[in-house]
Nucleic acid binder design. Structure first.
Lengths: 223, 223
DNA sequence: AACGAATCTGACCGTGCGGTCAAGATTCGG
DNA sequence: CCGAATCTTGACCGCACGGTCAGATTCGTT
């Protein structure tokens, strides 16, 4: 926009501000249009900087896209697996995990959409992450699940498929929000949607795992 | 390919053969690349016909894409809602619906991916379908669910969100198959994956709804 | 103040791709 | 068997869009 907001910046401030603005704009545009559908000119306009500027900082469209993806994954990985840990009570852990994923879907839907769109393309860039980091993480969390089952806290279940189910159910509220809203009609507001989503998904997961529901989630009032 | 396969065709046979080949090829290419990522030349190559031929039959890329989408929706709608019907037993109906959706995801993953990619784009073309046909269908199926609940056959649940969950869990095996395979590793074959998927999803849905599981699915052996 | 480095920007370029076209080949109706 | 309609092509076009560049402007340092 205009320069007056940065009268005397610390060194490298311009770089930081510009790249942040570009990344934010790129995340929005890539989320709605996908990699191929997104236009560099559109991202430039959305970030309030001239197109040549994007190339100054990121070189090519492909590199900008990778930067966005990495930014997303960084946060993704950081918050994941904080819930499914050995010490926890299964009910609390599973409900907490679902709640965290839903909150993420609501707060940063673009990230989920970019991830989805990348997997739809065959995950050309994410493949290493999927086969290594994610696979290892699922294996670790699977041990926890199986331990709970061995101790009789939940019924035996195929851990990876349980996670596929949880991811699918939660991310659908980010990726397919258009469909959700179309089906629910215009009178459904965000709060109502996500409250009902949390109640439903939590119930399917907890009951599906066969945990005792006595110490269940605080409230499951709204239908 | 070569002409010898059609020595004496009935009228319009060429049109039917060519359009069918083009539609099939287009579905494959659009599924992996999305609308913007797909190249007309690629579809042409995949269909074994020269590019100009696609334009002869479909005019523009956009119209070809619409044709593919309509083809998908036609079959989609036809098979849906055959399961969630008033007369049925909830266990049988829900398990059957899940099984049908999973079979669809396995048999025609491209269709599911194109649908997903279209919704990710904001559903520019599908919006009428979503707000009218699908919305009405969900409302009808919701009545059935609520009727089951009223008769004490299942617990009360928010019907639309139940369907969102079922769609998400089943379609994830088509849309995100790359992720599924990456996480499960190379030793997991199709049969094993879908058997475990069916067992897991069915369990979450049936228990989530609180139906008695006596007459449950035939087998749930494999992990 | 002054000079080099970093940042910014409008104007420009090459090409990949959707779409066209006109001429040739095949099929169809009578 | 002939003329008309349908179908099949390779060659070609225009332009949208990713990327470049050189000159202007601002920043950081002494």
């Amino acid at each position: 926009m205009d320069t007056q907001a940065r009268p005397q910046g610390e060194p490298g401030a311009a770089r930081r501000d510009s790249t942040a603005a570009i990344l934010a704009a790129a995340e929005r545009v890539f989320a709605r249009a996908g990699f191929h559908g997104a236009r560099m000119a559109e991202i430039a306009a959305a970030s309030g900087l001239p197109k040549a500027n994007l190339h100054y900082y990121f070189g090519t469209k492909d590199r900008l896209y990778r930067a966005v993806l990495e930014d997303i994954l960084r946060q993704w990985v950081a918050t994941a697996a904080a819930w499914i840990e050995p010490g926890r009570d299964p009910t609390e852990a599973l409900a907490g995990y679902v709640r965290a994923k839903l909150a993420d879907a609501r707060r940063r839907p673009g990230a989920s959409r970019i991830f989805a769109s990348e997997i739809l393309r065959g995950a050309p860039l994410l493949m290493p992450y999927l086969t290594e980091e994610l696979r290892r993480q699922v294996a670790e969390m699977g041990v926890v699940i199986e331990d709970w089952a061995a101790r009789g806290l939940i019924d035996p279940i195929a851990p990876p498929h349980l996670f596929f189910a949880i991811w699918a159910m939660t991310q659908t509220y980010a990726d397919f929000d258009v469909q959700v809203r179309a089906v629910l009609g215009p009178e459904a507001d965000d709060d109502a949607i996500f409250a009902a989503a949390e109640a439903t998904v939590t119930r399917l997961v907890l009951r599906g795992c066969g945990v005792r529901e006595d110490a269940g989630p605080q409230r499951e009032d709204r239908q």
